[in-house]
């Protein structure tokens, strides 16, 4: 024996002097509800209540400030589909090259498709470059690569807007200095889209770099060594060691970039004001303009919101489910 007083006798004496919380004999099953209820309540308020209410609103004429009007069934959805700002496709078989394909859904697809793809490709490439750097340079470059992401989006947008400004733009000045005529950044529909995609790539490629870099760090060195011992050429090492190792990370980056591209707002609105015309108006911006600017058509906006939620959550969650992010 240790030669000390028997602890076991004194073991249960302490209870009374303790704070109430420690003395409470709460069963695990009660406790788990006590822990979960506040969050469940708030989450219900954020997810169930708005969703149900949004569906309800979308079935009515509804003005944002004055409230509910007549029940219109799926009228708002029908209006949305017929709204040329939402989707417009005109095609004359006699002139097959002169078709018109526009509307916020189309702009969204172009914007999301190009910006996310470019961000992923560029992000993976830069992450691999970062990974190849020596330990001395890695932290420095990592910070430089990450900085754009940390800049408040509205500040990014203003900075770019001033940089490409027709009269005072630094970028134009620099391009002219090396003998390139600066493009009309925001005045043609195609160029305006290119510009907002470019700024989005500048701001958000860093997130992809960070995520993929974390993936690269997690690949054990021995796997590269095994591939080298087996005599695999560089492309094969990339194809069979690197790529499988970062597949999960690329999927995660994809999910978060997709999610954010559906809610893009300040960059587009500040740089192009969704124009020229409505040529860079994505769904989120159409939603804002429908509901919060002008007449406040919340019924139509809610219908658009439902479509946007279904689209975003559907696409993102299907990827999440497939890559097993839940585990």
């Amino acid at each position: 024996m240790l030669g000390l007083s028997a602890v076991s006798e004194r073991y249960r004496k302490r209870r009374d002097g303790q704070p109430l919380l420690n003395r409470l004999e709460v069963s695990d099953s009660t406790l788990r509800w006590i822990f979960m209820l506040p969050s469940i309540a708030v989450l219900a308020f954020i997810s169930i209540f708005p969703l149900v209410r949004a569906v309800w609103m979308s079935l009515h004429d509804w003005n944002l400030t004055s409230g509910k009007g007549a029940f219109v069934g799926f009228g708002n959805y029908a209006r949305l589909l017929n709204d040329p700002e939402f989707f417009r496709f005109e095609f004359d078989p006699s002139q097959p090259l002169e078709f018109v394909l526009s509307g916020s859904v189309v702009h969204q697809a172009v914007y999301t498709g190009f910006s996310v793809t470019i961000q992923l490709v560029l992000g993976v490439a830069l992450a691999m470059y970062l990974f190849s750097l020596s330990e001395r340079w890695q932290p420095i470059f990592r910070t430089i690569f990450v900085l754009p992401m940390l800049v408040t989006p509205i500040a990014t947008a203003l900075m770019w807007r001033l940089m490409i400004d027709g009269s005072i733009g630094v970028l134009n000045f620099m391009l002219e200095a090396v003998g390139i005529a600066p493009p009309a950044w925001t005045s043609s529909p195609v160029m305006a889209m290119v510009t907002v995609i470019m700024v989005s790539v500048w701001q958000w490629t860093p997130l992809v770099i960070l995520i993929v870099f974390a993936g690269l760090l997690s690949i054990p060195e021995s796997r590269y060594e095994a591939a080298r011992v087996d005599g695999a050429p560089r492309w094969a090492i990339f194809r069979h060691v690197t790529l499988p190792g970062i597949k999960y990370m690329i999927a995660i980056a994809l999910v978060f970039r997709l999610m954010r591209s559906f809610r893009a707002f300040p960059i587009i609105e500040t740089i192009t004001s969704h124009g020229p015309g409505t040529s860079t108006q994505i769904m989120n911006i159409q939603l804002y303009r429908t509901v919060f600017v002008g007449t406040g058509d919340a019924g139509l906006g809610a219908a658009l919101g439902i479509v946007l939620i279904v689209l975003t959550v559907g696409i993102c969650m299907s990827i999440v489910r497939r890559v097993g992010m839940m585990q």
């Binding site: 708005p50 949004a54 609103m57 809610r263 809610a302 969650m317």
Partner: peptide, 13 residues
């Protein structure tokens, strides 16, 4: 995942 603006509409109401 849901875009904040879409949630904002019913909340503002």
């Amino acid at each position: 995942m849901a875009p904040p603006l879409a949630i904002l509409i019913p909340l503002v109401g």
